[in-house]
Nucleic acid binder design. Sequence first.
DNA 1: TGCATTTTTGGGAACGTTCCCACAATCGTT
DNA 2: AACGATTGTGGGAACGTTCCCAAAAATGCA
Lengths: 339, 339
Amino acid sequence: MTTEDKTKGTAARVTILDVAKAAGVSKSSVSRFLDERLPKSDSDTARNVRRIAAELGYVRDMSAASLRRGKTGMIGVIVPRLTDTVMAMLYEALQKAAARKSLFAIVATTDDTPDAMRNAAETLLKRGVDGLVLSTARLDDRFTTDLTERDVPYVLALRTDGHSKSSIGDDELGGYLATRHLLDLGHRRIGLIGGPSYASSAAGRLAGYHKAMTEAGIPTADHLTIEAAFSMESGAVAARQLIDMAPDLTAIFAVNDNTAIGALSELQTIGKRVPEDISVVGYNDIPLTALLPTPLTTVHVPFEQIATEAIELLLDDESAGTAKCAMPTLIPRASTRRI
Amino acid sequence: MTTEDKTKGTAARVTILDVAKAAGVSKSSVSRFLDERLPKSDSDTARNVRRIAAELGYVRDMSAASLRRGKTGMIGVIVPRLTDTVMAMLYEALQKAAARKSLFAIVATTDDTPDAMRNAAETLLKRGVDGLVLSTARLDDRFTTDLTERDVPYVLALRTDGHSKSSIGDDELGGYLATRHLLDLGHRRIGLIGGPSYASSAAGRLAGYHKAMTEAGIPTADHLTIEAAFSMESGAVAARQLIDMAPDLTAIFAVNDNTAIGALSELQTIGKRVPEDISVVGYNDIPLTALLPTPLTTVHVPFEQIATEAIELLLDDESAGTAKCAMPTLIPRASTRRI
DNA sequence: TGCATTTTTGGGAACGTTCCCACAATCGTT
DNA sequence: AACGATTGTGGGAACGTTCCCAAAAATGCA
């Protein structure tokens, strides 16, 4: 702060060498004292060097450090899109969790298409990320084996492929809770708007639905399910199809808040009132659900926890194949009612 | 692909030197032929080198390149939060625009508080970003002057501070269009739910509202405005206050879709039907608005264009102080009706 | 006090690029 | 054929760190 930059034109960068000179020690020592990975020494010299570094306004050049260390301290996150609040929540949570390990999480989007995912991964890898968090895993895809072959550390979040390290929510339990809630309210004709079959999350929630229905003694033949994408538009379409198939439906479980919202919109158009004529349950508990004209009953997913565990798995070499599974909880609101 | 990695343990990195050796030229030449900034030469040697590089699976080490070039090719984006769809849309658009200039946009969030903004900027700067895009500018803040002093290139997006380079929407026009739409439908008692006063976007939309009202000959004293944050919750609160102040209101213009949605929710609770009892207009045209039970009339903002121009301004040294202003358009939907 | 052991230090070589500069090769032009 | 002008090439020195290793200093113990 007190010392002036010598060159007139551009402000010359303060390097580790300047600090060394000012502190009267070698650059090696400065490097060591400033290394955040080592247990920080508190010898007099160490403290002095740190003080001087701060005074001079030294900031480590990440490029140089990365080059030498062979690590950038960045991890890459791949999500279908950030305009989907669920994914934004996941990414924000991942960023926080990463920051706690002094890592920085950068993100790329894929629109949920497999080749865009490859591109996204390639972009992030070119940027030098130390590892990848994928929320776009497909049950069938062999992209993850590529990553393993290339020795790229990665972990799956929210969705799993069945064998990779992954941190997910207990989707089957969530699906069960949602369906069970409707059953407990006296509903029997319960339709399900499912997600794309390649997503394990959708599959799990569907399984939970089947489990609850079967447990309640409702014959499998009466299970009314339809597959949709995770978007509002497709939720609307699916709701319409469901009502066409079974006009006497008294409840719908949509495995995703967005599809639920789409369904709500369509039901309104059709002239079905929620919850008077039909109950609706969503999934994820995005902030919006609480503030809809009819607040949506939904399943809360602990994204912070999922994110934290994802990062931990990613950094832990010992944990190949481990899957962490976080507990969801049902949040009853105004869109469901006793029949 | 065909050649095997020699070392048994870890896959050794393919460097520019390996390519040089394989192609029988010097590393300097390889570097030159592979430099994406130079107009790409298509001499025989050049093509050959590129072919060999591809065959060997060479990828440039970004850290090394950044160190030498003094640029990382990353730009930092600062937004209040990504769970706000508006900000997610802006960031996605910025990422696309950046990618077109072969830059990568990384993001940090601030919760819209000034000191978190400083932290976020510091984090991004430490990561070595070449420039900053801020969507969190405050009219009063002197943070931008800090940046100028430190020679950090930056540009404001969506909001301006009045003197920095910025790429924004024409908020006054948007506010005018929205209000004018309501006036044209015969409304006279029009309440406004404004945004925080430190945001230029909110101020502009408010100005547009005043302009349209005054132009319609409605005395300023009858302008009913209230200030809210850009959140759904505060939209709900504001709507309630507005109705308490003036129960005979026939229309509300909320300067943000989120606040509009909050208002919608509150109006529902109060027992006011939209649009039968009261018309509502939002701002931003987030995807959700089209799929609400009552699709929301709103003002569309060309985020792609704003993002593109923001990136261009950021890269252009000549353009100090310039402000680009994109045209919004009114999207009439079901939440407004003739009185 | 002397000697072995631990801890702290600094010199110098990486890390993989880019970029300067000097030199060689090619090209027109007379 | 000889000349300057243009273009292409490669050697070597950066860029700012970290990390290895040998040397120096501090410590422990008899």
